[in-house]
Structures are given as structure tokens and as C-alpha cells.
């Protein structure tokens, strides 16, 4: 897979990798991509893709307000919080 750029794809996936990780994972993923390329052998002309084995469509519930997690419980696992909100670095200056 000459066009597989691990640095670029890791960035898309928002995973910071060390140089060592990049080279090791790059080789391993190259081998895996080589293996999965065997699907090219299969004739899939006219075959519909399967997303779920038993697709259910339009699964909805009645549009009625129900209880939800209390505010403090929803925030209980937050790595940083203040004033009842999650705290994050500034997005816009």
C-alpha cells in the first residue's frame, strides 16, 4: 500500500503518535492492508451492501419528555468542569 500515509491518517483520527509508533504501526498496517486486499478477488457485481444483519428502520419512541441523568451525575466523570459545564481550551480567539 504505497499510498497509505500513516502520519496523515493518524492526524485524521486525532491520535498523536511518536516516531517509533509511526514506523512500527506503519509496517504492521501495511501487512494488514496487504491481507485485506484479497477482497478484490470477489465478484460483487450486483450485490447489495449489508450494514446490519437485521435492519430495523424508523425505530422511534413517542415524543414525550422522560427523565434523564441529573446534571451533577452527568458531570461527575468530567476531567475539568466549572459552573456546571465541561471546561475546554478556547476554540476561537
Amino acid at each position: 500500500m504505497s499510498d497509505f500515509n500513516i502520519h496523515y491518517v493518524a492526524k485524521l483520527a486525532r491520535i498523536e503518535l511518536s516516531q517509533d509508533e509511526e514506523s512500527k504501526l506503519g509496517v504492521q498496517l501495511g501487512n494488514i492492508l496487504g491481507y485485506i486486499a484479497k477482497l478484490k478477488e470477489v465478484d460483487v457485481t450486483g450485490v447489495e451492501p449489508t450494514a446490519h444483519a437485521f435492519p430495523l428502520v424508523n425505530v422511534t419512541r413517542p415524543d414525550e419528555a422522560t427523565g434523564s441523568l441529573p446534571h451533577d451525575e452527568a458531570l461527575a466523570n468530567a476531567p475539568a468542569k466549572a459552573g456546571g459545564l465541561f471546561v475546554m481550551p478556547k476554540i476561537v480567539e
Partner: peptide, 25 residues
């Protein structure tokens, strides 16, 4: 310093090698 860097550093430090391999794949 920004949300993207926070995400990337968190995921880089928090996930092990197999999880990184599969997410990247």
C-alpha cells in the same frame, strides 16, 4: 493548546497499540 491538540494528545497517551492500529485502519 487547542481542542484538536487536547484530543490528539489524550488519545495518543490513553489508547494502547492495538486500539491505535484499529482506529487508524
Amino acid at each position: 493548546k487547542d481542542p484538536a491538540e487536547l484530543n490528539s494528545k489524550t488519545r495518543g497517551a490513553g489508547f494502547g497499540a492495538e486500539v491505535k492500529r484499529r482506529i487508524i485502519l
